[in-house]
Amino acid sequence: MITFRRLAGADLPLVGRRLSHPHVARWWNQDSSPEAVARDFGPATRGEDTSENLIALLDGEPLGLVQFGRLADEPADRAAFASLVAVPPHAVTLDYLVGEPDRVGRGLGTRMISAALRRVWREYPRAEAVLVAVVAANTASWRALEKAGMTRVGSGAMEPDNPVDDPLHHVYRADRPS
């Protein structure tokens, strides 16, 4: 069973290790040094960030990281999505990673995304949709989104996290179940 708990200060070394794994570093392209992790994730542990950062747990053991955010709280991100697709007023976006290399390619990312979507519908009652942008070259990620029930609704240029990537991104959407 996949559950979530809020990111805590004690989790920052774990986040740093996960960000340093090649399968994560390739797509997140984020400094994994203790100082950078404290700078980038510390505000979330103190409730100072508009996004929600959660440790995903598989049967109580850390599996990955999931970030949720209301696009209305991030004007630049909202504008990037809106350049490609319609963005509902209360849309939420998410980002995710499966931390350990031996857990990649086993369907756990799909399960984590599915659990994350259920959490969005529960925790964000006004959210009409979840939008996720993924660089087109990250086939494993967008396939996991599709397997989790999300639909590709657009493709186009967005600023990639990693400058080695082409700007082509696919945008996926899940609508609130009725």
Results as ranks from 00 to 15, higher is better:
L65A: 01
L145D: 12
A72R: 12
A36P: 03
V98E: 03
R119F: 10
R18A: 15
N53W: 15
V85F: 08
A72F: 01
G154T: 03
A136N: 10
W142M: 12
F4K: 08
F81C: 00
V15S: 09
D59H: 14
R143K: 14
A136T: 10
P22N: 01
R118G: 15
A127K: 11
A25P: 06
W142Q: 08
D59C: 06
G149H: 07
V15H: 09
T151L: 12
L131H: 02
H169T: 12
P125E: 08
Y124G: 02
H23A: 05
A10E: 15
P89S: 09
L108H: 03
R39V: 02
L14Y: 07
G99V: 04
A115Q: 06
A36N: 06
W27G: 05
M150Q: 11
G154D: 04
A129S: 13
A136M: 07
T3C: 09
A86S: 14
W142I: 10
S20E: 12
P88S: 00
H170F: 13
A80K: 00
E100D: 15
D11T: 05
R152K: 14
A56H: 04
D95K: 00
K147C: 06
E52Y: 06
S33A: 01
E100K: 09
L57N: 09
S155E: 15
L168R: 15
G105Q: 02
A148P: 09
R39N: 01
I113R: 07
N162V: 06
H21K: 04
T110L: 01
R111P: 01
V15T: 07
E61Q: 15
R78H: 12
L94T: 07
T45Y: 08
E100Q: 15
R173P: 04
K147L: 11
A133C: 01
H170A: 00
P163Q: 06
A56R: 06
Y172C: 02
G42N: 10
A174I: 02
R176D: 07
P177H: 05
D95F: 00
A8G: 11
V171Y: 14
G99S: 08
E100M: 11
T93Y: 04
W142N: 10
E159W: 00
R6W: 00
L7A: 09
M112Y: 02
P88N: 00
E123H: 12
E74R: 09
H169L: 08
D161Y: 15
L94A: 11
H23P: 01
V85G: 05
